[in-house]
C-alpha cells in the first residue's frame, strides 16, 4: 500500500473532523477542561498528546506481533508511561513555565482515554505507518478542540491571547470603562460548557454526514 494512499488519507483525516476524539468519541475531556484556561498550555498539551499518541502507536504497531496476549494492556501502558515521562522531562527542562502550569496533567496523559483507545483499536491491528497517521490525526483532532476552547477561555477570562493584552486596558471598569473579565471562564466548569457548545456546533455543521 502506498504511503499516501486514499485509505491512509482517510485514516489521517477522519479524527480531525467526523471522528474527532473529543467531540464525537467524547474522550480526553478532563484534560481538555483543566489545561485550557490559557492558550499556551493548551497548545503545548495538544502537541504533547499528538507526539505521544503518534509514537506510542508506532512502537506498539511494530511490536504488535510479539506482545504476549496476557500482558497486552500492561505493555501498552508501559510504552505510554515511558513516553509520557520522557516528554514531561523534556518540557520541564526546556519550557519550564508552561510545565508548571500543566503540572500534573502531563502525567495524566497516561490515563487519557484517547491513547489507550487508539492503541487497542488501531495500533494492535495495523502497520506502523498507518498507526502513525492515526496517532497524529487523533492527536491533532484533540489539539484542535483544546486550542479553540483555550482561545475563548483566555480571551474572555483574562482579556489576553498568548499573554498579549487584547482587550485594551482603558476598557476595564477599574480604569473608567465598562468591561470586566469573566471570572467563570477561568474555571473548569465553564470549560465544560464551552466544550459542550463546541460539540453542539460540530453536530449542527455535520448533521447530514
Amino acid at each position: 500500500m502506498s504511503l499516501f494512499s486514499k485509505e491512509n488519507g482517510e485514516v489521517f483525516k477522519s479524527p480531525l473532523n467526523l471522528n474527532n476524539p473529543v467531540a464525537v468519541q467524547v474522550l480526553g475531556i478532563c484534560s481538555a477542561l483543566a489545561v485550557t484556561s490559557q492558550l499556551k498550555p493548551a497548545i503545548v498539551m495538544g502537541l504533547s498528546v499528538t507526539v505521544i499518541t503518534a509514537f506510542a502507536n508506532v512502537i506498539i504497531s511494530l511490536l504488535r506481533k510479539t506482545i504476549p496476549n496476557r500482558i497486552r494492556i500492561i505493555v501498552q501502558l508501559v510504552v505510554v508511561a515511558a513516553l509520557v515521562t520522557i516528554v514531561s522531562n523534556i518540557l520541564k527542562a526546556y519550557v519550564y513555565d508552561v510545565s508548571v502550569q500543566l503540572s500534573v496533567y502531563v502525567g495524566l496523559i497516561i490515563t487519557n482515554c484517547i491513547l489507550m483507545g487508539r492503541l487497542e483499536a488501531f495500533a494492535m491491528q495495523n502497520g506502523p505507518w498507518e498507526s502513525f497517521l492515526d496517532g497524529v490525526g487523533n492527536g491533532l483532532g484533540y489539539a484542535f478542540v483544546l486550542v479553540v476552547v483555550g482561545f475563548f477561555r483566555e480571551l474572555l477570562g483574562f482579556g489576553t491571547i498568548l499573554g498579549f493584552q487584547v482587550v485594551p486596558d482603558c476598557c476595564y471598569m477599574e480604569n473608567g470603562g465598562l468591561y470586566l473579565n469573566n471570572g467563570m471562564m477561568t474555571m473548569p466548569a465553564m470549560a465544560l460548557i464551552l466544550v459542550a457548545c463546541f460539540i453542539w456546533a460540530h453536530r449542527s455543521i455535520n448533521k447530514e454526514k
Binding site: L180, N182, G183, M184, M185, M187
Partner: peptide, 9 residues
C-alpha cells in the same frame, strides 16, 4: 453565573 463570573460585582 453572576457570582462566579463577576464576583467583584
Amino acid at each position: 453565573f453572576l457570582f462566579f463570573a463577576y464576583p467583584a460585582m
